[in-house]
Amino acid sequence: MTVVEVLVRLALVLAAFLVFPLVIGQTEHKVMGHMQARVGPIYAGAFHGWAQLVADGVKFAQKEDVVPAGADRRVFRLAPAIALIPYMVVLIAIPVGSGDLVGRSIDAGVFFVLAVMGVGVLGSLMGGWASANKFSLLGSLRTAAQLMAYELPMLLAGASVAMAAGTLSLTGILGQWEWWWLPWQAVGGVVFFTAGLAELQRPPFDMPVADSEIIFGAYTEYTGLRFALFLLAEYAGILVLCALTTVLFLGGWHGPWSDDLGWLWTLLKTGVLAFVVIWLRVSYPRLREDQLQKLAWTGLIPLALAQLVLTGVVRVAIA
């Protein structure tokens, strides 16, 4: 790989990182609107409000960057970057199409993506603690508790796929993928997706930012661009989670004419999953803190373990 090629790949990943979260955000505006019998943004950019998020970005950039007087300034300022950058790093490892259509193929890809995604939560923790605000601190605590509960089922579900494929590399997993893995790994897929939603603090798992109780959790004191970065991190997280679920459980670029249109299949599946994320947000109320913990420890972890057993049994039976 030449230097130019590496730069081109990084530029493409960066472009995807900047564009797709905005697309998801705009889709969320419109889909949420229509699901609530509204039209969503309609003015900005003239055509169905396509430029709404651009306008939002400009607005955020104009706002004053406030750091509370009692805050720990350095940590407070650093937190949004910690929250955002891991998702960008993860995108590098996600294969988009067959062959070499990936930012960088990583040997222990599954562990890489899960490990780096887990780091992003540190941003919320740092921000919440450094804000010197009791609501922020509560939000951080809830974030941490939620992460610890849901990291395990997510890992177990990911491990099940790695076990099925006999490799930890994301490209390797896709290389092994057969259509009947869909029903075989279905439970693991549901567990992975649900746990991922919880890790992103998306509704119905948005207890850490429950606005009726703790305003906006760890992000309460943030304004302007730093706040926008946290929001961007959330949408980048949706992109990463959906792309990862696609790759691990839905066969990524596999599909009819996948030799030429593999990347389209990946995008399509990711898009459908992103729609599901939005759909769930509109449909379900927020889970209470104890319900959250109960779902993880008594629901998802046993399911993930059962999936592991099933994977192992089938794998041995085939061999």
Partner: peptide
């Protein structure tokens, strides 16, 4: 590589978060 990512996953992703918690 494997040890490195497990290090990030377990120590940064879990142990430090638990510590901060």
């Amino acid at each position: 590589e494997f040890i490195a990512w497990v290090q990030v996953l377990i120590y940064i992703g879990a142990v430090v978060v638990l510590l901060l918690f």
